[in-house]
């Protein structure tokens, strides 16, 4: 008395779901405010750093061992350019302007 037969396949779902990538370029729903992942990681570390002289580039590197130096440097340059961070005692120490 079982309803035999391949009447219900259920695998037609997704056949038309491709190519729907329109969410790029919207306002975005991620945790970043227009920053890349690396940039926001760097910014968060600098924000979280308690010392008044700011976080050094060396420490940034050791905190982000999976990123190479040039990526970190780019993130720092970007954040500095945007006004999120600024250099302190020298060009390798940074503090955040966002910290309230």
């Amino acid at each position: 008395s079982k309803p035999s037969g391949p009447l219900i396949m259920g695998n037609s779902v997704g056949a038309s779901g491709m190519g729907d990538m329109g969410s790029l370029g919207g306002s975005g729903s991620g945790p970043t405010n227009g920053l890349t992942l690396h940039q926001s990681q760097v910014l968060n570390l600098i924000k979280a750093y308690p010392k008044p002289e700011g976080l050094s580039f060396q420490e940034l590197r050791s905190q982000l061992p999976n990123l190479n130096a040039s990526v970190i440097k780019q993130a720092v340059d970007f954040l500095s350019n945007e006004g999120h961070i600024y250099s302190t005692v020298d060009d390798e120490h940074f503090k955040s302007t966002d910290a309230e």
């Binding site: 350019n81 945007e82 006004g83 999120h84 961070i85 302190t88 966002d98």
Partner: peptide, 20 residues
């Protein structure tokens, strides 16, 4: 340390400009 303060002010100005 005057340099630091100027850097900070410059950064804050940049930040403000971005949000304006």
């Amino acid at each position: 340390l005057e340099r630091i303060r100027r850097n900070k002010e410059a950064a804050l100005l940049r930040l403000a400009a971005r949000h304006a």
